Each structure stands twice: as structure tokens, then as C-alpha cells.
Simulated scan of single mutants.
Amino acid sequence: MKPFIRRKFEAWLILLAAKILIDRNVQRAAVVSRRDNNDMWGMAEQLEAIAKRISTNYP
């Protein structure tokens, strides 16, 4: 049971990081360049995929 809870918790933390990156995505930001904005969006998508694999124990 402990590995199950640990996997779910780690996946949740990764999803939290992805949410922070996606929420940082804005249409017109004076302090974030368009390239950085796009990179953050891509990183968030990759983190979501990683969290899914961790949560399902790498099927």
C-alpha cells in the first residue's frame, strides 16, 4: 500500500508543478517572452505525461 500512496503523491506534486506552469501562460506578458511562454506550456504538457506514467506504475 505504501508504494501506491507514494506514486499517487509524487504524481500529484508533478501535476501541481504543471498547473503552475500552465497558469503562468498569459496572452500578453510584459515580463515573459513569447518563446519562454511557449516553452513553459510544452514543459507542462511533458510533466502531465510523466505524472500519468508514474501514477499508473509505468504500464
Rank of each mutant, 00 (worst) to 15 (best):
M1Q: 02
M1L: 12
M1K: 03
K2C: 09
K2A: 15
K2V: 04
K2G: 08
P3M: 04
F4N: 06
F4W: 10
F4R: 01
I5A: 11
I5S: 11
I5K: 02
I5V: 07
R6F: 14
R6A: 00
R7N: 08
R7G: 10
R7Q: 05
K8Q: 09
K8R: 03
K8M: 10
F9H: 05
F9I: 07
E10I: 07
E10W: 06
A11P: 01
A11F: 05
A11W: 04
A11K: 02
A11Y: 00
W12R: 10
W12I: 03
L13R: 04
L13K: 02
I14H: 04
I14W: 07
I14M: 03
I14T: 05
I14C: 07
I14K: 01
I14E: 06
L15Y: 05
L15D: 12
L15A: 03
L16W: 07
L16Q: 06
A17D: 06
A18G: 05
A18F: 02
I20K: 06
L21Y: 01
L21A: 11
I22Y: 13
I22A: 15
I22C: 13
I22W: 12
D23W: 09
D23N: 08
R24W: 14
R24M: 13
R24V: 07
N25M: 11
N25C: 13
N25V: 00
N25L: 11
V26K: 07
V26C: 01
V26T: 01
V26W: 13
Q27W: 15
R28C: 10
R28L: 14
A30P: 01
A30S: 11
A30F: 11
V31I: 03
V32Y: 15
V32F: 14
S33M: 06
R34M: 11
R34T: 01
D36S: 10
D36T: 10
N37H: 09
N37F: 14
N37G: 05
N37K: 04
N37S: 08
N38D: 13
N38L: 15
D39H: 13
M40R: 08
W41L: 15
W41A: 14
A44N: 00
A44V: 00
E45Q: 13
E45R: 10
E45Y: 10
Q46E: 13
Q46V: 01
L47Y: 05
E48M: 15
E48V: 04
A49M: 08
I50K: 07
I50W: 01
A51P: 04
A51W: 08
A51F: 07
A51R: 05
K52Q: 11
K52H: 12
R53Q: 08
I54Q: 08
I54K: 07
I54R: 01
S55C: 09
T56Y: 13
T56C: 10
N57L: 12
N57K: 03
N57H: 11
Y58W: 10
Y58G: 02
Y58F: 14
